[in-house]
Design a protein around this nucleic acid. Structure first.
Lengths: 241, 241
DNA sequence: CGACTTGGGTACGAGTCCGTACCAACATTT
DNA sequence: AAATGTTGGTACGGACTCGTACCCAAGTCG
């Protein structure tokens, strides 16, 4: 229960709160580690906490009984638990950790009380939800009209945006679940991308070699949502480094 | 500028507001007609009004320069202009009328002031946004893993939910744009669905003959978001008739 | 070291959908 | 009735992805 000083917080939303709003949250903040496959919340069960990642990535997946697949992704640019901010402590989605890391979380009730007391806090979090809707829309868009390679390129870019390193620990199997496709299909797509020199693949790892090339390969499937985030928060989605 | 009495309002969100919250909005409400292809707002331009359909349907489409396609649909169960409620009067999406009808609208600024004065009003509208996120997620889900016939069945069901009649004026061309596919593909899919007896097609019209059969054909691509709406508002999405 | 688990590569037939093109049926206007 | 525009039906080759199956390589653990 380390109630971090705001100046040391990496999460972009928390870091960009006014000092007063942060002070309102601080007594209730709790630092936790994120381990791959941890669940931050599960479909149709009460959401206990809203989670602001510091490092690592959480995936929001739709869980229909006919297999899950990813509808959105959150790292240190946002938070997981949009429905709590919208006043509902339950959702048909599941949220699980995609990349190991660390997060600051707050109880759902505490956050709701704090938002009731601070209109500027609420406004800040609602703006993120707008950008999240755009992200989910873009997932719908990408799924509708783009090839597996293009969608894979998009997914790698989104993951890259939210991690520190160019070397990312990801298996083909995992990507196939996130993209809702076959595992052998991912293998082929990875080989294609590797052939262009944009990435390098090794057992359980993908390394980004040439980000510009990858963006070119992703085409219009990437960029839309990221641009909106920049506009709304006047900050690029990717942390400078 | 007919400031409708709440008891005669068809829009489910407006109708289910408390009398006090409705009174807060009433001076600013304005009734307008919706004509096919009218735009309620355009990508990256200021959103002047939030629109609550009474009859008819509005589509929210992503507009990437590489062709538009639908990410969500709103009828009398909700409203168009989620980003205004989230505090942003601009969005990369475009909203256009899909089916002729009528709507009650309110200026973006007036609605924002009203929400600032009434927490219950804000909460009500935010709950709808949660259900809208689920709808967009399901579009992403359907686009990822379902065949054209299944997605067409889903789209027809969603349209049927929001219209009064089993007979719906829709062209193949229009469906192909909404589904992001080729027009001849729609023709084939329509014939498939017609072959099962679920619908009947005639020039510019689709008639729903057997809704249960259509739901069965749509499989898991339909139902998810509609169920969530029912849970959140304790009302079925389809108006009784 | 040998067995086991996990992750990755490959193959092949089948089905879906795309891109493109052309024609037929219907509606509206003059 | 002819002209024009809209809508719907059909065809065909090619690209992509699926479903399924099998094997190989790398790490792990007794």
């Amino acid at each position: 229960m380390s109630q971090a000083q705001q100046s040391t917080v990496r999460n972009r939303l928390l870091a960009s709160l006014s000092a007063g709003d942060y002070a309102l949250l601080r007594p209730h903040l709790e630092t936790v580690t994120l381990e791959v496959r941890d669940h931050l919340f599960r479909a149709d069960q009460k959401i206990a906490h809203v989670t602001f990642p510091e490092y690592g990535i959480a995936s929001i997946v739709a869980d229909t009984g006919e297999g899950r697949f990813e509808v959105g992704m959150v790292g240190s640019e946002g938070f997981a638990g949009t429905s709590v901010v919208l006043g509902i402590d339950r959702t048909p989605h599941t949220c699980l950790v995609q990349a190991t890391g660390e997060a600051i979380r707050i109880g759902s009730g505490e956050l709701q009380s704090a938002m009731d007391r601070s209109p500027t806090l609420r406004a800040h979090l609602l703006r993120f939800i707008h950008t999240f809707i755009v992200q989910v829309s873009q997932t719908a868009y990408a799924n509708a009209g783009y090839s597996l390679e293009e969608r894979l390129a998009r997914w790698l870019l989104m993951t890259h945006d939210r991690l520190e390193h160019d070397d990312m620990p990801i298996t083909h199997e995992f990507m196939s679940i996130m993209l809702g496709t076959r595992r052998p299909g991912v293998t082929l797509a990875v080989q294609m991308l590797e052939g262009t020199g944009a990435i390098r693949a090794s057992r359980g790892h993908i390394t980004i070699l040439d980000r510009d090339k990858l963006e070119h390969l992703a085409g219009q499937s990437y960029g839309f949502a990221e641009k909106e985030y920049s506009n709304v928060f006047a900050l690029p989605i990717k942390r400078g480094r």
